[in-house]
Design a protein around this nucleic acid. Structure first.
Lengths: 198, 198
DNA sequence: CTACCTTCTGAACAGCGTTCATCGGGAGAT
DNA sequence: ATCTCCCGATGAACGCTGTTCAGAAGGTAG
């Protein structure tokens, strides 16, 4: 077993352990010493595999982001809607469903402020997000057939951000009186309005 | 000068200093020792005034939240729009403007996860948010005169969350290709669609 | 078997929020 | 004015972080 293999092994083990920690206790539960103990290696070895703890969080987020993408994509494929409005709602519901079932992993995607230190987003991030955008572009193009692609994309980003905001504030229960039961109705209100605005 | 007065004084000084720290360097720059040095007191005194550092952050957020509320309210009053759609857009633009001009203070409002430890939101938080909701209710009632108040409030929360999402992802530049220039257009797209859905 | 290089190790370091035994100064009684 | 006493202020100390790096351990080539 080569050195590279062992490093890859440790890397996978650390990511798996880190994901469990985040899933069950949240991002703050990622501790170097705890992971070293659980993965049966020294704290120093973690830094041979990841530059720092933040890199490990990013690695977990990469898996989460991919899982989120397939969750939404499969929901759209499964529903097989032809009506563009229904397709938008299916996607938003799938997004809400993923966030509801994996609240801490989903939160972890956003509570790493990649805005401050590293302006350049990772490549996989751009590509995965772009894949998500493309499947939103499709129904929007059906609804607004006369708009140029860049106008479609602007609306795609607006809708994604809007749904994200509804899910975010809903899940955090930051907004008084918002129960999880209200969220599908809120999603339908926004998406149906947009679709009707043809 | 009584003890209570001195405590109140220190409290105000600490809040002011903390706000400057957050404004210029972000929430992570709130350090007990740094604040003690700057406010010319001991670290222990901070804990005589605030239960812990988180309480201090909440105090700063309280001021920020009030300022945000008046910023939006004044923008609506200044514009004096009669058209409900224009009023919604004025409010959303004011929200965006506040977040753009005070990005770190605005961020600080949300990166304290009040979701985990303290389920009960502070009283002032509920009341301020409710005041914000009421001024959104008004134009929405104009647009949907036949809806009962609770249906109006549901749409109010949906719109607030949606605009919040657009501003959030726009300001963090998390979403690839979103420039600050696009955000007013995205806001208008969502709000105009909703208003047209009368 | 030796010599060398790479990898792994965990004690050590700097810094954090928080606590609490200790101290000092102001308020009230004499 | 002086003495007590008590309560708020203090900052060293505690336990916890992430991160580093001198040295140990181990594998490999000669």
């Amino acid at each position: 077993m080569s050195t590279a293999d062992r490093r890859a092994d440790l890397r996978d083990r650390l990511i798996a352990l880190a994901r469990v920690r985040i899933e069950t206790q949240g991002t703050d539960a990622l501790k170097a010493r705890d992971l070293a103990r659980a993965s049966d290696c020294s704290v120093g070895s973690i830094y041979n595999v990841f530059g720092d703890m933040h890199d490990l969080l990013v690695a977990v987020n990469g898996q989460t982001f991919l899982a989120l993408g397939t969750h939404v994509t499969e929901a759209v494929a499964r529903a097989g809607d032809t009506d563009p409005t229904a397709r938008l709602i299916t996607m938003a519901d799938a997004y809400l469903d993923f966030a509801t079932r994996n609240p801490r992993l989903w939160r972890a995607l956003f509570d790493t402020q990649l805005t401050m230190q590293s302006p350049e987003a990772p490549d996989w991030y751009i590509r995965t997000l772009d894949g998500l955008y493309e499947i939103i572009d499709a129904p929007l193009t059906d609804i607004f057939p006369d708009l140029p692609p860049e106008e479609i994309r602007l609306r795609t980003r607006a809708l994604f951000s809007a749904i994200h905001g509804i899910v975010l504030l809903g899940i955090e229960q930051r907004v008084s009186g918002v129960g999880p039961d209200d969220m599908p109705e809120m999603i339908r209100f926004v998406l149906a309005s947009v679709a009707r605005g043809r």
